[in-house]
Every structure is written in structure tokens, then in C-alpha cells.
């Protein structure tokens, strides 16, 4: 326990810039991971109900520009 605490202190809390960077990067990383996970769960719950699941039936064949066909 003491080893973990001292290691944590030496690696993160000793220098403020390291600490702040850890906080910000951790926030971004957590949000990305959380959003990805929950979106995946959401899409699995609502499989076949959302527009992106039925969109392919109605989009014209790519003869013309299809870049304006966004979500």
C-alpha cells in the first residue's frame, strides 16, 4: 500500500504540470471511452430503429454527389 501511494505520489502528484496534465487527459480519455461505450449500447438496444439503420434503403445510388447527405 505504501509502495503504491509513494509511487503514485512520485509519478503524478509531485509535479503540478504532470498532475494537471493527468487530470485533463484523464477527463478526455474517460469521456471518449464512456461515450463510445454508451453509444454502442444505445445502438444495440435500438438496432433497426434509427435512421442510420434504414438510411441505406433511401439514399440514391452514388451516381451524384452524396456528400450532402449527412446524419
Amino acid at each position: 500500500m505504501a509502495g503504491i501511494a509513494s509511487g503514485l505520489f512520485n509519478s503524478i502528484f509531485r509535479r503540478n504540470y504532470v498532475f494537471l496534465s493527468t487530470v485533463f487527459l484523464g477527463a478526455f480519455a474517460f469521456e471518449i471511452a464512456f461515450d463510445t461505450t454508451t453509444d454502442a449500447i444505445w445502438n444495440r438496444i435500438n438496432k433497426g430503429r434509427q435512421w442510420k439503420d434504414i438510411k441505406h434503403r433511401y439514399v440514391q445510388k452514388p451516381s451524384e454527389d452524396e456528400d450532402d447527405d449527412d446524419e
Binding site: W42, I45, N46, R49, Q50, W51, D53, I54
Partner: peptide
């Protein structure tokens, strides 16, 4: 609670 609209039905 966690169900969207059925977009085929909306159409």
C-alpha cells in the same frame, strides 16, 4: 426509457 422512435414508422 431507452427506446428511440422507429424511424421506419416515422417515415
Amino acid at each position: 426509457w431507452v427506446k428511440t422512435f422507429d424511424h421506419q414508422a416515422l417515415r
